[in-house]
Design a protein around this nucleic acid. Structure first.
Lengths: 154, 154
DNA sequence: CTAAAACCTGCAGTTGCTGGAGCTTCAAGC
DNA sequence: GCTTGAAGCTCCAGCAACTGCAGGTTTTAG
């Protein structure tokens, strides 16, 4: 039996966000408007909680609201427009893989720092170089390499 | 031979961000002010590029500018205030690990959708449930469970 | 020595929330 | 069934992290 009468404050608490954030998501059409009591207060169900929780996690992972909107749409597109769903899934999967690789490098570096850290200070910190250098760029700007235009020509 | 005369436009292009973003980072003190030409135009070096690239990647991974500031500070704190550096590294490492786990789940789901997708439409999309449910919350709001205050279960 | 391209400052607009004012509704206790 | 305080409502202003534009200056390729 799905709970259908969760007030906005409890919902906010349970997913760890602000009440206003939920209202904002409703306002921009990211979350569907919930039931209302006779006195016009919002009452949510499990489906709302799931979607909201998803949105929050996705945002924490760096997805834009536009991305989130697309990912939410995936669930509805399956069984209707499969080709388009595939396209969205494929594109987001690429982004997810790149994020995982970047975070993996960063984790390794942080772990290395902590391993050395115990008393005997390390000489250099590679945390910045780690995320800075490799070509794992999420956006698709032409190419993030440097050699090509410097010092040899524009 | 470190390039020391990269104009802002080239720098922006090479890391895939806007010119204004770089100026904004300088303005808020996230990036150090670069050299200027006689005509007051900014000229950057490799160190700037590295830092900027790091910032952009970290932002794409969902870190706030405050987090980024801390991570940048790590590089400077090593060799001076090792204990504090350790603390920052440890905290960020925790966040990184959680992000990796969440992204791992999401990747699995997207891959599953695409694997099934080829022509034979799948019945349900678990992408939302995947990121929605598990307790891998980045923030440390009390506890994301629901059972406690609501009569029970979805 | 031009003229287009790139840069400068300053400021307004956008996205994604967050907080406050002023008022209404809900629900727990009497 | 009435009170009363917590929680909700709408509207609007503000903040973080950019993004774009106007109006003018500098650089650089030809």
């Amino acid at each position: 039996m799905a709970q259908l009468s969760i007030p906005i404050g409890k919902l906010a608490h349970s997913v760890g966000c602000k009440v206003q954030t939920i209202r904002y998501y409703e306002q921009i059409g990211l979350l569907p408007p919930p039931m209302r009591t006779a006195g016009a207060q919002r009452r949510y169900g499990e489906v709302h909680r799931q979607k909201l929780s998803f949105v929050r996690h996705a945002r924490e992972l760096g997805f834009s609201l536009a991305d989130v909107r697309e990912l939410l749409a995936l669930a509805d597109k399956v069984n209707s427009d499969c080709g388009q769903a595939d396209e969205i899934a494929r594109r987001q999967l690429e982004a997810v893989r790149r994020r995982i690789m970047m975070l993996g490098s960063l984790r390794t570096e942080l772990e290395r720092m902590l391993a050395h850290g115990r008393g005997k200070r390390i000489r250099e910190c590679r945390v910045i170089a780690t995320l800075a250098d490799h070509g794992l760029c999420i956006g698709d700007h032409p190419h993030g390499s440097h050699e090509e235009d410097y010092p040899l020509l524009p």
